[in-house]
């Protein structure tokens, strides 16, 4: 009896949730591997294929700019992440640790900037980007992604710095360490889990970004994976569902990989940011 109750009250709903949340990934995979004669044949069961093929993958990699887009996205994501983490780390240390005049206000201001969604900014930003001569150049994204990455990093790191006892820094200071040495040898190493969380989050957010990449980059060979797939492979009414799903699959792999390696850090970053 208890078993039945547990089945109805727990396993069935959990199973339904997992089906709902994971089915699109399965559908992506099956479509990517299914030959065209099966893909557009309504009399077959669409959930399976007996003749999997790598044709779609082959077409994606050699007949489209997918590899170039991947390289672009990787470069932009690494650049934006490095810039955001470097500036965010220093700012978070200053605001959380040095407590100079105005630091509290600055912390609140940076938190508020985190709430400004990109849809409010992309129209005026397009004008700034072109005025700076960055139109259709990767630098446009490396410089604009920090607008949502820096506030996130600062906010998350402030929480981490708060967990490191001030006494540790004071001891090092008494022993004659300069402020830079304290940062370099005491505080930053202790905040390493937080730094790693920022790194992962910033990288995946940059990799996934769509709006700015769509607006600021226009030529085919400059595009990122999210924009390239959605604009260059969706061509009129002739849908290339096979290559498109292969691209969606491959484009998700880097973030899924980073995520699976650091699940705990990722969850910590997400929940840590929420609890502040």
């Amino acid at each position: 009896m208890r078993g039945v109750a547990r089945l109805v009250g727990f396993h069935l709903p959990l199973g339904a949730f997992l089906l709902f949340l994971l089915f699109p990934f399965y559908w992506m995979l099956v479509t990517a591997l299914k030959p065209n004669r099966d893909l557009y044949n309504l009399s077959l069961n669409p959930l399976w294929t007996w003749s999997p093929t790598l044709d779609h993958l082959h077409r994606l990699l050699w007949d489209t700019h997918f590899l170039l887009w991947t390289r672009n996205t990787l470069g932009i994501s690494l650049g934006a992440t490095a810039l955001s983490l470097a500036t965010g780390l220093l700012a978070a240390y200053a605001i959380g640790r040095l407590r100079f005049r105005g630091s509290g206000l600055l912390g609140i201001a940076i938190f508020l900037t985190y709430l400004v969604p990109p849809v409010i900014l992309f129209v005026p930003l397009s004008r700034i980007v072109s005025a700076l001569g960055l139109w259709d150049r990767p630098a446009a994204l490396v410089l604009t992604y920090p607008t949502f990455l820096v506030p996130f990093c600062v906010w998350l790191l402030l929480g981490y710095f708060r967990t490191i006892p001030q006494e540790l820094e004071d001891c090092a200071r008494v022993d004659g360490a300069s402020r830079f040495q304290v940062m370099r040898y005491v505080t930053f190493p202790l905040a390493l889990p937080g730094i790693l969380s920022c790194l992962i989050f910033a990288f995946t957010l940059s990799w996934n970004e769509y709006l700015y990449a769509l607006v600021f980059l226009s030529s085919t060979d400059q595009k990122t994976v999210p924009v390239g797939l959605a604009t260059e492979l969706v061509t009129g009414d002739v849908f290339q569902w096979g290559p498109l799903m292969a691209g969606a699959l491959l484009g998700s792999v880097p973030v899924a990989l980073v995520y699976s390696l650091f699940v705990e850090h990722y969850v910590a970053a997400l929940t840590g940011a929420l609890k502040e």
Binding site: T204, Y210, V234, L244, G251, S252, V255
Partner: peptide, 9 residues
């Protein structure tokens, strides 16, 4: 986790 633009496709 996965890019929204790709899951949108």
């Amino acid at each position: 986790i996965v890019p929204t633009s790709l899951s949108a496709l």
